[in-house]
């Protein structure tokens, strides 16, 4: 299969610390790729490099043969890479519907004047955006909360709303940073089905996760990081039996 995303020798330093060290891997179009590793392994840093929040000190990140290096986060979203945040970052005083609409922003065109004077094209676009946002809320199971404040949702639902917001931007790849964090077992089961449904829509998924049950269940490919270095790559079955991975997680005898 053609790789959707290809990282070559990506490096990020913070002062003397090398958070991500010469990491190379590729992710397939239409696949579910997991990034795992102990705390402080550089997983979230890698995500921030992918989404443009950090600029790498070396290496290249190609998304469908277009380099993402040096682009701003909003440009990367427009190219088709949407993300969720590990520490949930919703617009909590805005409604659930508006949070989903915020994700739609980059696919809309209305500018200052057409917004102030309400042109016909602007109204059409607005209507279509509301409909799409509602569809994504239905997809993630949040439709009954449309007009509630995002801040009033349960933690599990807030994570789902972040996914709905990301989906509203028509992503090609969706990057989920610990989507099961602070979720209970039934919520995690809903999430697993949701992630598969996202993939079935043809959207590639990349996720960071600590919940090994979830990772082994949904991911088709895993990348294992430790101290910023990629120590293993392969299918869940291969990773489970890899001695280096076991050592990284459980420590040496």
């Amino acid at each position: 299969m053609k790789p959707l995303l290809r990282l070559t020798n990506v490096t990020k330093r913070f002062g003397g610390l090398i958070a991500v060290n010469e990491v190379s891997f590729s992710a397939d179009e239409g696949g579910i790729t997991g990034i795992i590793g102990p705390n402080g392994a550089g997983k979230t840093t890698l995500f921030n490099l992918l989404t443009g929040n950090y600029a790498p000190d070396g290496g290249d990140i190609l998304f469908r043969d277009v380099s993402l290096v040096g682009r701003k986060p909003h440009e990367i979203v427009a190219l088709g890479v949407a993300r969720t945040f590990q520490s949930i970052r919703l617009f909590s005083s805005m409604s659930v519907l508006e949070n989903a609409l915020a994700g739609r922003h980059c696919r809309m065109r209305a500018g200052l004047l057409s917004s102030m004077f309400g042109s016909a094209a602007q109204r059409r676009e607005e209507r279509a955006a509301v409909e799409r946002a509602v569809r994504e809320l239905e997809f993630t199971g949040l439709a009954e909360f449309l007009n509630d404040k995002a801040g009033s949702l349960s933690y599990g639902n807030r994570r789902l709303l972040e996914i709905a917001r990301a989906l509203a931007s028509d992503p090609i790849l969706i990057a989920l940073d610990e989507p099961a964090g602070s979720m209970n077992q039934p919520e995690t089961e809903v999430l697993v089905r949701l992630i598969r449904a996202v993939r079935d829509r043809g959207i590639s998924v990349m996720l960071i996760e600590h919940d090994m049950g979830l990772v082994m269940q949904v991911c088709e490919k895993l990348i294992v990081l430790e101290y910023g270095i990629k120590i293993a790559e392969g299918s869940p079955a291969e990773i489970r039996g890899n001695p280096r991975v076991i050592e990284a997680y459980l420590g040496q005898d």
């Binding site: 929040n53 979203v77 945040f85 970052r89 617009f91 917001r165």
Partner: peptide, 9 residues
Amino acid sequence: TAAEGCGID
């Protein structure tokens, strides 16, 4: 940060 991250310039 969240605004930038969901596609707003």
